[in-house]
Amino acid sequence: ETQAGIKEEIRRQEFLLNSLHRDLQGGIKDLSKEERLWEVQRILTALKRKLR
């Protein structure tokens, strides 16, 4: 995994995270989306740690 590859994956995950946040802010309670949001946040945290 290169730095560029990790950064690209971070961009993808952040896009997905923002999309999930928008969907959930629409007021629709969706447990699967909430679980996915937490999963994406965990992935992002792990990726950012790899960059250090």
Rank of each mutant, 00 (worst) to 15 (best):
E34Y: 15
K7M: 14
E39M: 05
I28H: 08
R22K: 12
E34L: 15
Q25R: 08
E39A: 04
E34P: 02
G5R: 15
T45K: 11
R36V: 10
K33S: 05
I43S: 05
L51G: 00
L16N: 01
K7W: 14
T45L: 11
Q13H: 13
E35D: 05
N18D: 14
E34N: 05
R12K: 12
S32Y: 10
A4T: 06
G27M: 05
I6F: 02
G27A: 08
R42F: 04
L44G: 00
L16Q: 02
A46N: 08
G26P: 08
R49Q: 14
E14S: 03
R49M: 09
F15I: 15
L47G: 00
E35T: 09
R52C: 12
K50V: 06
L20Q: 00
R11P: 01
I43T: 09
H21Q: 14
W38L: 14
I28Q: 08
R12Q: 06
I43R: 08
L31W: 07
K33T: 12
I6A: 01
K33F: 10
R42I: 06
L44K: 00
L51N: 01
K50F: 05
I43N: 07
A46Q: 11
D30R: 01
E9A: 11
W38A: 14
E9R: 07
G27R: 04
S32T: 10
K29R: 12
W38N: 13
E1N: 09
R12Y: 08
L16K: 02
L51I: 04
R42S: 07
G5L: 14
Q13S: 02
I28T: 08
R42D: 05
G26F: 09
L47R: 00
L16F: 04
D30K: 02
E39R: 03
K48E: 04
L17M: 05
L24S: 03
D23Y: 09
E39K: 04
R22P: 02
F15P: 01
D30C: 03
A4Q: 10
L24P: 02
Q3N: 07
S19W: 11
E8C: 12
R49P: 00
L37Y: 15
R52N: 09
K7V: 11
T2G: 06
A4I: 08
L17P: 01
W38C: 15
L16D: 02
L31I: 12
E34S: 08
L24R: 02
R11M: 08
F15M: 15
G5V: 11
Q3T: 12
I6G: 00
E39G: 02
W38D: 10
V40F: 04
K33C: 11
V40H: 04
Q41E: 13
A46G: 06
L17H: 03
G27D: 07
L44F: 00
K7A: 10
E14R: 05
I10L: 01
F15S: 15
L24H: 03
R36Y: 10
A4E: 13
K50C: 11
V40A: 06
E34V: 14
L16P: 02
E9V: 03
R49Y: 05
G5Q: 14
L31Q: 12
A46L: 07
E1L: 11
R36E: 11
L51Q: 02
K48H: 06
I10D: 01
E39N: 03
G5F: 14
I10N: 01
G27T: 08
E35W: 06
F15D: 15
F15L: 14
L31H: 12
V40C: 04
V40E: 02
G27E: 06
K29V: 10
K48G: 03
Q3D: 07
L47Y: 00
F15C: 15
H21R: 15
K33L: 15
R52H: 12
L37K: 03
E1T: 10
R36H: 07
G5C: 15
D23H: 05
L17Q: 04
A4L: 10
Q13L: 15
L24F: 04
Q13F: 15
L31V: 13
Q3K: 10
W38G: 07
E9T: 03
R42H: 05
R42N: 09
E9D: 05
E8I: 07
E39T: 03
H21P: 01
K33A: 08
E14Y: 09
L44A: 00
E34K: 11
L47T: 00
L47E: 00
L16S: 00
N18E: 15
R49L: 10
L37M: 11
L16Y: 05
L16H: 02
E34A: 08
G5I: 12
T2V: 09
L47K: 00
R22E: 10
L51R: 01
T2E: 11
Q25H: 13
K29C: 14
I28Y: 07
A46I: 10
G5W: 15
L31G: 06
A46D: 14
K29T: 08
Q41P: 00
L24A: 04
E14M: 09
T45P: 00
R52A: 13
G27Y: 04
H21L: 15
E34H: 08
D30S: 04
L31P: 14
W38S: 12
E8Y: 03
E35R: 13
R11E: 07
Q25V: 14
F15V: 14
Q3V: 15
K7Q: 12
R52M: 10
N18C: 15
K7H: 06
R11Y: 04
I6N: 01
S32V: 13
G5K: 14
E1S: 10
E9I: 04
L20D: 01
Q25C: 15
S19G: 05
L16G: 00
L51D: 01
G26A: 11
D23P: 02
R42K: 12
A4N: 07
S19L: 13
L20A: 01
